[in-house]
Design a protein around this nucleic acid. Structure first.
Lengths: 211, 211
DNA sequence: GTCTATATCAAGATAGAC
DNA sequence: GTCTATCTTGATATAGAC
């Protein structure tokens, strides 16, 4: 079980790196900080990741894999039909504001650590997004609709990460309803709701709406 | 004219900083690199911006002001009516892929330089986005529609900056058409196009479509 | 595999000449 | 206002003991 133990330790060290980024920002993602966070010496850390580039690379690779597993699982849970991938993303990412604390925070840590350390290290995440966007685009929807849904979700993610807007329950729900309505109206087989107001009424009550 | 000359020089130095970020990435945004880019010594640079934080702060402030002027100008050019701000954003940011080289690249330089240097320095950009989102939300559209348009545009911006997707003419046009269609269908006074395919046909030919 | 000690270097910032 | 020279710090990485 040596291999499993080694992987477990690597995971612990990557967790520590993510925690440093989340709490202290990418400027403080130093080998010292990661080692301290993990309760290990810098020398010990460098035994597992010989350079900082390798550490960030592992961070991005793990995050990309997690994100891929995440949206594929959501896809499997989503009823078949046109726009299945787009609907899965809406369900998974915009069901409520609670989603915006765990998985997405880790993804952002990895992406921005790569951006700061060495932009080419973002490649594994790029590959996963390439897969995701292919699925969203070849989804039985009119051109651009699925891509617009995915882009809007990632736009909210950007706002949240950079603090450019307050991404709260209200905003998430409003945007979800608008995008769901766009999806519904895009599918000839499933006719659109009669009016925007009806769509709003229909979606109310489905998520714990803060007052 | 001393004041004007000083401001001109400050602008030149900020241009140099942006050029460094664009060409070499935020990891290489050092005082040495900025000074070299501007053809000045580090000591000379530090006379105008006593700390690196102040330099990045000025970068963000200038970028935020430019971005605000930019979307307000687009707003003035856009016909009145519901969703005016959202339509202005679509026209200005998604008219074609050429837009994705100048203004947005500068904004991204400033934002990510702030993220790496000191996240609190992003505040001026946050204030501008707060203004923009208020305008988009209070625009005579059903709730969430304007915000979804703005978020989708900024999602594309994120893809482009991080290289998470290839933001080319085709993608920009597809997404623009989908969002314009959502806007049109959201406005009771201006009834929706009969079908998504008709919307695609109507929008073709308006922008130089690459083959 | 983990530690301490240390080499090396680059970056931010200061001092003072011109 | 701009320069050169220098100080100081902190970060990556290495060496070698345990």
């Amino acid at each position: 079980m040596e291999r499993a133990d080694t992987n477990k330790l690597r995971d612990t060290l990557l967790d520590a790196a993510e925690a440093v980024v989340v709490r202290q920002g990418i400027a403080n993602l130093t080998l010292d900080a990661v080692a301290a966070e993990a309760g290990m010496s810098k020398g010990g850390l460098l035994h597992h990741f010989p350079t900082k580039d390798r550490l960030v690379e592992a961070l991005v690779t793990r995050s990309a894999g997690n994100w891929r597993a995440c949206y594929m699982e959501a896809y499997e849970r989503t009823p078949e039909g046109p726009g299945r991938m787009a609907r899965a993303l809406l369900d998974h990412c915009l069901s409520d504001a609670q989603c915006w604390t765990g998985e997405l925070q880790r993804s952002s840590s990895a992406c921005f650590a790569a951006l700061a350390q060495n932009p080419s290290l973002i490649e594994p995440m790029r590959a996963v997004y390439s897969d995701l966007h292919r699925r969203v685009a070849e989804d039985g929807l009119p051109p651009g609709v699925g891509e617009a849904v995915a882009a809007a979700i990632d736009g909210l993610w950007l706002y949240w990460v950079l603090g450019l807007a307050t991404v709260n329950q209200e905003l998430v729900v409003r945007v979800r309803i608008a995008l769901e309505d766009m999806l519904a109206r895009s599918m000839p087989s499933m006719p659109a709701r009669s009016s925007p107001k009806a769509a709003v009424r229909a979606a109310k009550g489905s998520g714990g709406h803060r007052s």
